[in-house]
Simulated scan of single mutants.
Amino acid sequence: MTDTERTPAAATGEKQPFDLGTGPGRVLVWFYGVFTVAAASRSIVQMILDFGRAPLAYVLSAVAALVYGFITYSLVRGGETARRTALVCCAAELLGVLVVGTWTMAEPSAFADATVWSDFGMGYLFIPVILPITGMMWLRRARKA
C-alpha cells in the first residue's frame, strides 16, 4: 500500500462525498421513513376495506407513500445521483401537496375521504408541506459541501 492510498481524502485535497443521512439528514430520514409507513399503511387498509368509496384519495395516499419511500431510500443511499434524484422527488412531492391541498380547499366535495396531502397535510400537522421544503434545503446544502 502506498502513502497516497493510506492518506485520507481530506489530506490529499480530494473532495469527500457528502453523506445525506448524517446530521439533519438523519432527522429527514426518520421523518420520511415514518411517513412512508404511515401513508402506505393508511392507503393499503383503505384500498382493501373500501376502495370504491374514495379511489382517488386512496391512490393519492399510495403515491405519497411511494414518493416518501423513494426519498428515504435516496437519503440513506447517499451520493450525488441519489441527492439529485431526491431533490427532484422533493420538488414533485411539494407540487403534489400544493395541488392536492389547493384542490381540497377549493372543492372539498372532490374527495370522499382525506389523503395525506389534503388541506396541505393538516391531518398530519402540516408536516407534508414542511418536509419537502426542508428536504430541498438540506439537499441543496449537501451539493455545496
Rank of each mutant, 00 (worst) to 15 (best):
T2H: 11
D3C: 00
E5T: 02
R6G: 02
R6I: 04
P8H: 12
A9D: 13
A9R: 14
A10W: 06
A11W: 08
E14K: 09
K15A: 13
K15M: 12
K15N: 11
Q16I: 08
D19P: 00
L20R: 09
T22N: 11
T22M: 10
T22S: 13
G23M: 15
G23T: 12
G23L: 10
G25S: 09
G25A: 08
R26E: 12
R26I: 13
R26D: 08
R26G: 15
V27Q: 04
V27D: 03
L28G: 12
W30E: 08
W30T: 15
Y32E: 04
T36E: 02
V37G: 07
V37Y: 07
V37L: 14
A39C: 10
A40I: 05
S41M: 08
R42A: 05
I44H: 07
I44M: 06
M47W: 01
I48M: 14
L49N: 10
L49S: 11
L49T: 13
F51W: 14
R53S: 12
P55L: 13
L56P: 14
L56A: 15
V59F: 14
L66N: 07
L66W: 14
V67F: 03
Y68M: 02
Y68W: 04
Y68A: 03
I71N: 07
T72A: 08
T72V: 06
Y73C: 01
Y73W: 12
S74N: 14
L75W: 10
V76Y: 06
R77L: 09
R77S: 13
G78M: 06
G79P: 13
E80Q: 10
T81G: 03
R83T: 07
R84Y: 04
T85F: 04
A86T: 06
L87F: 11
V88H: 06
V88E: 04
V88P: 04
C89D: 09
C89R: 01
A91S: 14
A92K: 07
E93M: 13
L94I: 02
L95K: 00
V97F: 01
V97Y: 02
V97I: 08
V99C: 04
V100K: 03
V100W: 07
G101H: 01
G101A: 04
G101W: 00
G101D: 02
G101V: 02
W103A: 09
T104F: 08
A106V: 10
E107Y: 13
E107M: 14
S109G: 07
A112H: 07
T115E: 09
T115F: 13
W117V: 05
F120S: 02
G121N: 01
G121T: 00
M122G: 01
M122T: 04
G123Q: 09
Y124F: 10
L125Y: 14
F126S: 03
I127D: 01
P128T: 03
P128M: 06
P128V: 03
V129L: 08
I130V: 15
L131D: 09
T134K: 01
G135Q: 04
M136E: 03
M136D: 03
M137L: 14
W138N: 09
L139P: 06
L139Y: 00
R140W: 13
R141L: 10
R143S: 11
R143F: 02
K144M: 05
